[in-house]
């Protein structure tokens, strides 16, 4: 029993880190442009298809180069989305223009995926499979890799935002765009860079979840929404909040199968989201408005 609980907790932490990365990825865009990217789950799906479908299966490139090329193409795509949608639409009278823009972009990406790679799900044989036993608990290698990579992403993002000139400029743009431009920061360009980084994090999420979900058109449907819940529960717009919220949801929903039928697992995070919106809308770490 104890081993089962440990196993649940560990896989909860692993999937929690995925939710946290999703939270980070859209919080970056939210802070930078003041807009929500409603195509973010499609970007994750697209990243998985480019990596698995094109780079590995079709072109048979070795993993490190395939990862690099996928990052590069997704990063450029992110910057183009910022230049094509966020920058022209963020100063419109209502955010609804940009919201519609990213929603339609999501539809376009979904249809493109169906046209290019077809509707049949597939997987990468032998990619991040196998288990490691620690004591009496069996832990999948995928979960261990997810935890290590997620921590590396969170730490390096923090270092980037604290110590590099571009990272500091990103924080300035998030706080005050007018003052940023008076500092000599090219705000439009900075939003492109931030969205590009966000798209690269989407790609990291995509590659990490391939062993969990296979490559399908609905790959990111549930983690996209749960990542959003993670942001709200942790404290909206605050990067460490996304991590806390993600881990909380991941562990709670995994432990819920001890008390609830497993089919209700996906419901748990949304119930938590609603409870937090009603009781504590500022989340765990957010400041009360």
């Amino acid at each position: 029993m104890a081993a089962t609980i440990i196993q649940y907790i560990i896989s909860g932490i692993a999937i929690g880190f995925i939710y946290a990365l999703v939270g980070i990825e859209y919080t970056l865009v939210w802070n930078s442009s003041g807009l929500l990217n409603f195509s973010h789950d499609r970007l994750i799906t697209l990243g998985a298809y480019i990596f698995a479908g094109t780079m590995i299966i079709k072109l048979n490139i070795n993993y490190p180069i395939a990862i690099f090329l996928t990052f590069l193409s997704m990063g450029i795509l992110g910057a183009l989305i910022a230049q094509g949608i966020f920058n022209p639409l963020r100063n419109m009278r209502s955010n609804i223009f940009a919201v519609m823009g990213t929603m339609l972009l999501g539809r376009i990406i979904a249809e493109l995926i169906r046209l290019i790679w077809g509707p049949v799900p597939f997987t990468l044989p032998g990619f991040m499979t196998g288990t490691v036993s620690i004591g009496s608990a069996q832990i999948s290698k995928a979960n261990i890799i997810i935890m290590i990579v997620s921590i590396l992403v969170a730490v390096s993002l923090q270092l980037f935002m604290t110590f590099t000139k571009i990272g500091k400029a990103m924080r300035c743009v998030a706080q005050n765009k007018r003052a940023s431009s008076l500092m000599g920061i090219n705000v439009t360009q900075n939003i492109c860079i931030t969205t590009g980084i966000s798209a690269i994090i989407c790609t990291i999420i995509a590659i990490l979840v391939i062993p969990l979900f296979n490559v399908t058109t609905t790959l990111a449907a549930s983690i996209g929404l749960k990542g959003f819940s993670a942001g709200v529960i942790g404290g909206f717009g605050y990067l460490p909040g996304a991590i806390v919220g993600g881990l909380f949801i991941g562990v709670v929903e995994n432990l819920s199968v001890l008390f609830l039928p497993a089919v209700y697992k996906d419901v748990v995070s949304f119930v938590l989201l609603i409870v937090f919106l009603v009781v504590r809308p500022s989340g765990f770490l957010g400041k009360r408005a």
Binding site: K168, A169, R171, C172, Q175, N176, A179, M183
Partner: peptide, 15 residues
């Protein structure tokens, strides 16, 4: 219009 979430030193550096 200073950057409220940054330290005084960081504000100066951004200048």
């Amino acid at each position: 219009e200073i950057f409220p979430k940054m330290t005084v030193l960081e504000n100066l550096e951004m200048g």
